[in-house]
Design a protein around this nucleic acid. Structure first.
Length: 876
DNA sequence: TCAAAGACGTA
DNA sequence: CGTACGTCTTTGAC
C-alpha cells in the first residue's frame, strides 16, 4: 500500500523543507485515516515485509526478481510510516523469513476463528485467497482513493473462480510482479475453465492427460512451474507472531508524538483530520482520576496544618493566573504532595494565612517542584511573594533530557512521557471568570497539573542521572532561572524621546528612497513585496536572474548587491536603502510598543528553546538589536541607564567560540595564538600565508576570519568561495593550508562527528548533550545537516555553558558583596549590567573575575568591559 | 484568521 | 552548499 501511495502521488509535491520525500507516508497515512473513518474498526495492525530473505526466495531465487530498483525517493519512507504507526499507537508486525501477506493471513485466520469480522487492505492479489463470508479484502483499483471491497461474489465476477481457488488460477496464469511464469498460452479464462471442471490445481494435475490441444501440451511441459507457483503463492496462516489480537485494539493516537512527527513531516491537514477522527476533545483524562482530591485552604490554621503534614516532602505547585495588563496576575495556588492536594485562593486569605504562605514560599528548606519556575516566580513577585526553594522545574528537566523538542508545555510532556492527558494550564486566560467560570472550576485542573508535574519530576529524576544531566540541572540551568527571573523583572530603561526621533529619521530616509526608486521605474509598487519586486527587476528592468527560490528568483540583500555589481542599476541602491531603513524603523517601532509603564523593556528569556543550550530572547528580542551599521547602532543609544543608577556596563568575551575550539582540539598552534595575545586572525593569517604578522593585509585577515568562524559551522569550500567571492579551487586551497597548519583542529572536527555517530549525541564541556539521530539517516540532506549541527553544538553549547556559569557567579558575588548593581541583559557572549553609584570599580572587578574564571580552558578567557550612559556608549 | 514564505537583525 | 535564534511583512488559502 505504501508503494501504491508512492506511485499514486507525485513525489515533487510531497517533501519537507529538509528534502525528505513524504508522498508514500502521506498517502499511506491519509488512506489509513480514511479507512478508520469509514470502516470503524475496533482493532488495527499493519504488517511489513523485511529486506531479509524469505522462505520463498530460498525455494526460488528468482522470486520477485527482475523488479526495478526501489526508487531513491522511496527510501526512508517506510521507516517514517512505522513512526507514524507508533505515534498512532497502531502495532506494526514483521517476521524474519516471511512476508507481510503471511502475517496478514495468520492474523486474519486468528481473528476469523475468534468470530470477528476482518478487513484486509492489501495491494497484493494473493490476499484474495483469504476471502470468506467473514473476511473481505480491500484491493486498490486505481491509486489509493478507489479501494473497493472484494468479497466472494466480486472475485467470482471478475475471475470466474471462488476466492479459495484464486491461488490456483494465479499459479496457472503466472504472476509477472513476483516473477512467477505460468503456463504459456493459459490465461485467466482457460485457467478458470479447468479449475471449475476439475476443482482446482490438484484435480487438474490428476487429469493431465485428458486435457487436449496445444494448451494441454503446454500444461504438461510446465507442471513443475505450476506446482512451484502454487507453493509460493500459498499464504501461511500459522506463524508465531509477536503480537496477540488484543494488542491491536485501536487506541487514541499519542498526541504529543503525533504533533512532533507530523510537524516534522509538515502534515498539517492530516494532523487535523486525525485529531478530528478521534474527537480529541474527548480524550480520557486519566490523571483526573488519579490525582488526589483537594481541599480548599484559605484559613491560617488549615494552611499551617497542610504545610506541616507535607513537611520535607516535595510539594508540586501550580499557579492559577489571569492575564492582565502588566503581566499575569496570580489568583490561586494548587499544591500537591504525595497523595494530598490543596488549593489556596489568594484573594480570600486572611493576613495571618498570607504571611504563613509567604514564609513557606520563600523557605529554602521547603522543597518545591514547579513547571516553568521563572514564570511562577515573576507572577508571584507581583503579589509580593518570593518563590524560593525550588528543587525541580519540569520544563527544564525535560529540556535537558530532550533539548530539541518543539514544546515543553506541561500538557504535552505529560502526554508524551506519562501518557496522561492533562488540560493545558493556560486555560485561565482573563475573561474566563466573567464567562461564568468560578475559581473553583479552575482549582481542579490546576491540581491535576500540579500532580502531573510531581509525576513528571519523579519520572525525570532517573533519566537526568542516566543522561548525565543532574549536575547541569542543579548546578546550572535551574539556579540560572532565578537569575533570569530577576533580570526580566528589572528590565532595561529606554529613552522614549530617542526612540521617537529614530522613527522620524528613518521615515525620512524611507520616503526619500522610495520616491527615488519609483522615479527610476516609473511606477509605484510595494517595495516590501518580493513578488512585486521580482516583476520589476526581472520583467520590467530585465535584469539578470539571481538565485532560484521557491517563488521565482531571490531579491535578498546578497542577490541585490550582486545585481548592482553587475549592472550598476540605481534602483537597486534605493531599494537596499529602503530595505535597511524599514528594517530599522520596524525594529524601533517594535521596541517602542514594548516599553512598560515603568519606562523599561522587560524581555523574556526562553531557557528551553535553543537545542544547543543557548538562551533566546522574546517579546521583544533584545539579542538582535543592530550593532553592525552606523545607523543601526543609534538604536542602542536609546537603551539607557535607569534612574538611581550611575552607568551601564557591558562585558563580553572576545572570540569565545574560537577559544573553545582551541581548547577542545588541543591544537598547539591555535593555543599559542591565544596565549601570545596577538590579534587572532592576524596570527593565523601569518601562519597560513607564510608572512610576518605585521605583513598580513586586511584582505588576508578577512579571509582567515571568515574561515575560522566557518569551520565552527561546518562550512564547505563552496560556501567559503561564495562568501569570499573567490573560486572554489582557491577556497579549497585556503582550507587545505589552514588545516595543514592547524591539523589538530581538523582531527578534532572529524572526531566530533565520528563520536556523535557512535554515541548518538554530542556533549559540551559541562556535559550538555544534543541528540542527533539523523546522523544515521540515509537521506543525505538530513544526514549532512546533522553533521554540521554536530560540529557546531559542542562549541556553541560550551560557550552557552560558560556564560551561564559566569552569570551565576556574577549574581552570587553582587549579592554577597552587598551591591545594588544588577544584571539586565545577556546577548550570548555579552552581559549588560546597571551599576549603582560608587560601585563601578568593584562591579567591573567582580564581573571580570567571574566571567574570566567561568571555565578552566587551556587558553585564557578574555573579557572586555566598557561603561557608558547608554548601551552604544558602553559597548566597545 | 491563519500559516507559509521571504527577508533580515543578532551571536 | 555555515550554526543558533525571533520578528516583521506580504500573500494566499480557508
Amino acid at each position: 500500500m505504501a508503494f501504491r501511495a508512492f506511485y499514486a502521488l507525485p513525489v515533487e509535491n510531497f517533501s519537507t523543507d529538509t528534502g525528505q520525500h513524504t508522498n508514500a507516508v502521506y498517502g499511506f497515512t491519509s488512506m489509513l485515516i480514511k479507512m478508520i473513518e469509514q470502516r470503524e474498526p475496533t482493532h488495527v495492525a499493519v504488517a511489513f515485509d523485511l529486506d531479509t530473505p524469505t522462505f520463498r526466495t530460498q525455494e526460488y531465487a528468482e522470486y520477485k526478481g527482475g523488479r526495478n530498483k526501489t526508487p531513491e525517493e522511496f527510501h526512508g519512507q517506510v521507516d517514517l510510516i512505522v513512526k507514524v504507526m507508533e505515534a498512532m499507537q497502531i502495532p506494526t508486525v514483521t517476521l524474519d523469513g516471511y512476508e507481510a501477506d503471511d502475517i496478514i493471513a495468520t492474523l486474519s485466520s486468528q481473528a476469523e476463528d475468534a468470530g470477528w469480522e476482518v478487513m484486509v487492505v492489501s495491494g497484493d492479489r494473493d490476499a484474495f485467497q483469504l476471502i470468506t463470508d467473514k473476511v473481505t479484502v480491500l484491493y486498490p483499483k486505481k491509486g489509493i482513493s478507489d479501494i473497493p471491497p472484494m468479497d466472494s461474489a466480486a472475485v467470482e465476477a471478475k475471475y470466474f473462480v471462488p476466492p479459495k481457488r484464486y491461488s490456483d488460477l494465479a499459479a496457472l496464469v503466472g504472476e509477472t510482479a513476483d516473477n512467477l511464469p505460468g503456463v504459456p498460452g493459459v490465461g485467466p479464462k482457460t485457467a478458470a475453465k479447468w479449475i471449475n471442471l476439475y476443482g482446482g490445481v490438484d484435480g487438474i494435475l490428476e487429469n493431465l492427460d485428458s486435457i487436449g490441444g496445444k494448451v494441454g501440451e503446454s500444461l504438461r511441459a510446465n507442471v513443475d512451474s505450476v506446482k512451484r507457483n502454487r507453493r509460493l503463492n500459498h499464504l501461511l496462516r500459522d506463524l508465531e507472531l509477536p503480537v496477540e489480537l488484543e494488542h491491536m485494539v485501536l487506541q487514541h493516537p499519542d498526541r504529543a508524538a503525533i504533533e512532533e512527527l507530523f510537524d516534522a513531516l509538515q502534515f498539517n491537514t492530516l494532523r487535523k483530520r486525525l485529531f478530528d477522527l478521534f474527537g480529541e476533545e474527548d480524550a480520557v483524562r486519566e490523571t483526573e482520576v488519579n490525582a488526589p482530591a483537594h481541599q480548599v485552604v484559605s484559613e491560617a490554621a488549615a494552611l499551617k496544618e497542610w504545610l506541616a503534614e507535607s513537611n520535607q516532602l516535595n510539594v508540586a505547585l501550580q499557579l492559577v493566573a489571569e492575564t492582565a495588563e502588566g503581566g499575569d496576575d496570580a489568583v490561586g495556588l494548587a499544591l500537591v504532595a504525595h497523595a494530598r492536594a490543596a488549593y489556596v485562593p489568594l484573594a480570600s486569605l486572611d493576613a495571618e494565612a498570607e504571611q504563613l504562605l509567604a514564609h513557606w514560599l520563600s523557605d529554602l528548606d521547603a522543597p518545591k517542584i514547579v513547571h516553568d519556575f521563572k514564570y511562577a516566580y515573576k507572577v508571584l513577585s507581583r503579589r509580593g511573594f518570593e518563590l524560593l526553594g525550588v528543587v525541580d522545574d519540569t520544563a527544564i528537566s525535560a529540556y535537558l533530557i530532550q533539548p530539541d523538542r518543539r514544546s515543553y508545555e506541561l500538557a504535552d510532556l505529560a502526554q508524551y512521557h506519562l501518557k496522561m492527558s492533562v488540560a493545558a494550564p493556560d486555560a485561565a486566560a482573563s475573561g474566563q471568570l466573567e464567562l461564568g467560570l468560578t475559581e473553583d472550576d479552575k482549582a481542579g485542573p490546576a491540581v491535576v497539573q500540579a500532580f502531573a508535574a510531581l509525576q513528571l519530576s519523579e519520572h525525570f529524576a532517573g533519566q537526568l542521572v542516566e543522561r548525565g544531566a543532574n549536575q547541569l540541572m542543579g548546578g546550572l540551568d535551574l539556579p540560572l532561572s532565578l537569575v533570569l527571573a530577576r533580570m526580566e523583572l528589572a528590565g532595561i530603561a529606554m529613552d522614549a524621546g530617542a526612540l521617537d526621533r529614530l522613527v522620524d529619521d528613518f521615515t525620512v530616509t524611507i520616503d526619500a528612497a522610495s520616491s527615488a526608486a519609483f522615479g527610476i521605474i516609473g511606477k509605484e509598487i510595494n517595495l516590501g513585496s518580493p513578488k512585486q519586486l521580482q516583476a520589476v527587476l526581472f520583467d520590467d528592468l530585465g535584469l539578470p536572474k539571481t538565485k532560484k527560490i521557491k517563488t521565482g528568483y531571490s531579491t535578498d540583500a546578497d542577490a541585490l548587491n550582486d545585481l548592482f555589481a553587475k549592472t550598476g542599476n540605481e534602483f537597486l541602491v534605493q531599494l537596499l536603502t529602503y530595505r535597511d531603513a524599514t528594517k530599522l524603523r520596524q525594529t524601533v517601532e517594535g521596541l517602542r510598543k514594548t516599553v512598560a509603564d515603568d519606562g523599561r523593556i522587560h524581555t523574556t528569556y526562553a531557557q528551553t528553546v535553543a537545542a544547543t543550550g543557548r538562551l533566546s530572547s522574546i517579546n521583544p528580542n533584545l539579542q538582535n538589536i543592530p550593532v553592525r551599521s552606523e545607523e543601526g547602532r543609534r538604536i542602542r543609544e536609546a537603551f539607557v541607564v535607569g534612574e538611581g543608577y550611575e552607568t551601564l556596563l557591558t562585558a563580553d568575551y572576545s572570540q569565545i567560540e574560537m577559544r573553545i575550539m582551541a581548547h577542545l582540539s588541543g591544537d598547539e598552534g591555535l593555543i599559542e595564538a591565544f596565549r601570545s595575545g596577538e590579534d587572532l586572525h592576524r596570527f593565523v593569517g601569518a601562519h597560513i600565508f607564510g608572512v610576518a604578522p605585521e605583513d598580513v593585509t586586511s584582505e588576508m585577515r578577512a579571509k582567515v576570519k571568515a574561515m575560522s568562524y566557518g569551520l565552527v559551522y561546518g562550512l564547505s569550500s563552496f560556501g567559503l568561495s561564495k562568501q569570499l567571492n573567490i573560486s572554489v579551487d582557491e577556497a579549497r586551497t585556503l582550507m587545505k593550508d589552514y588545516f595543514s597548519r592547524f591539523g589538530a583542529v581538523r582531527d578534532y572536527l572529524r572526531g566530533v562527528v565520528d563520536q556523535a555517530r557512535v554515541d548518538g549525541f554530542t556533549s559540551t564541556i559541562e556535559g550538555r548533550r544534543r541528540y542527533l539521530p539523523d546522523l544515521a539517516s540515509d537521506n543525505r540532506q538530513l544526514r549532512e545537516m546533522s553533521e554540521r549541527a554536530a560540529l557546531n553544538a559542542p562549541i556553541q553549547g560550551s560557550a552557552a555553558d560558560i556564560i551561564k556559569k559566569a552569570m551565576l557567579g556574577v549574581a552570587q558575588e553582587l549579592e554577597s558583596q552587598g551591591l545594588k548593581s544588577r544584571m539586565l541583559l545577556q546577548v550570548h557572549d555579552e552581559l549588560v549590567l546597571e551599576v549603582a553609584p560608587g560601585e563601578r570599580e568593584q562591579v567591573e572587578k567582580l564581573v571580570r573575575a567571574q566571567m574570566g574564571g567561568a571555565a578552566d580552558l587551556s587558553v585564557p578567557l578574555d573579557v572586555s568591559v566598557g561603561v557608558g550612559a547608554n548601551w552604544q556608549e558602553a559597548g566597545h
